[in-house]
């Protein structure tokens, strides 16, 4: 903490952090006495997919959960440093995490649809945030969200069936539709395909690429191929530090750090 870590290699940060969609500076995270993140600084650029890779326990998920303050829910967790969303510090006491999470949506590792109907799953967010004034408007939101999530053709005749009855891949796309329905600006994805089969994974990856048009996406992934396929920029975490960050192509073809190279060539991980 008192020792300022050296900044990550590559272009992790912009010169003017206000240009970034999400900007983190010197973020430390502690679980009780244990430090999980050490001085992470990174800028996430708008309308790009940023992939965070690294071996298990390297802190990439922890960092992701800082971006919508999901770490607040863990009693012993403490976050130091600053994280900005559109130039606004999200860790000031005045900021409402509830409002923040409406702007920064999240998709989890395991598909976790609510034990409700498909319709109610997607309508959940708009309902709690009061995004619609009428039933018709809500229908509209649900349908467009399902459409954007590429699920509409598969479920349009069974909106009143349980969301838990869908296949794994469909469930995950339902969760994405659920996140989209709140019209977030940023979508965080925590290993969204790790529980899916290859075909479902391909569909979700395709979807992520489409979503890039409208949303800023941060994705944590175990699979380097996936990072290479879907992301424009990649950050490599190791032991709680952001080692290197840059254009995905550059990271995978010409890593600057020995650790990065070791990881992407499969020498550890």
């Amino acid at each position: 903490m008192n020792v300022a870590s050296k900044p990550a290699l590559g272009q992790a940060t912009l010169d003017d952090r206000r240009l970034a969609k999400v900007s983190a500076r010197d973020v430390d995270v502690f679980y009780g006495a244990k430090q999980a993140l050490k001085s992470v600084s990174i800028d996430i650029r708008p309308n790009e997919v940023t992939a965070l890779i690294g071996p298990s326990g390297c802190g990439k998920s922890t960092f992701l959960r800082c971006l919508n303050r999901m770490n607040d829910l863990i009693e012993s967790c403490r976050v130091v440093g600053s994280i900005w969303l559109d130039g606004e510090d999200i860790y000031t006491s005045g900021l409402d995490p509830v409002q923040l999470r409406a702007r920064v949506g999240m998709v989890f590792q395991k598909p976790n649809p609510f034990p409700k109907t498909i319709y109610d799953n997607v309508a959940y967010g708009p309902r709690i945030h009061g995004l619609s004034r009428s039933r018709a408007e809500l229908d509209e939101i649900v349908m467009t969200s399902l459409e954007k999530a590429g699920l509409i053709d598969e479920v349009k005749d069974r909106l009143q069936e349980q969301g838990t009855g869908l296949s794994g891949g469909q469930q995950q796309r339902l969760c994405i539709a659920r996140a989209i329905a709140v019209s977030p600006e940023v979508i965080l994805m925590d290993e969204p395909c790790s529980a899916l089969d290859p075909i479902a994974t391909a569909k979700v990856e395709e979807l992520i690429d489409e979503l890039r048009q409208r949303y800023t996406i941060v994705i944590v992934t175990h699979s380097m191929q996936q990072a290479a396929r879907v992301s424009q920029r990649t950050g490599f975490f190791h032991l709680g530090e952001l080692v290197e960050c840059g254009e995905t192509e550059q990271i995978f073809t010409n890593p600057r750090h020995k650790l990065t190279q070791g990881y992407i060539t499969g020498r550890f991980g």
Binding site: M70, L73, V98, Q99, L100, A102, N112, P113, I128, R178
Partner: peptide, 15 residues
């Protein structure tokens, strides 16, 4: 009740 359900809801900005 699995934690994932709670996180899903809280992640959507529910109180």
């Amino acid at each position: 009740v699995p934690r994932s359900l709670r996180e899903a809801s809280l992640g959507l900005g529910a109180t």
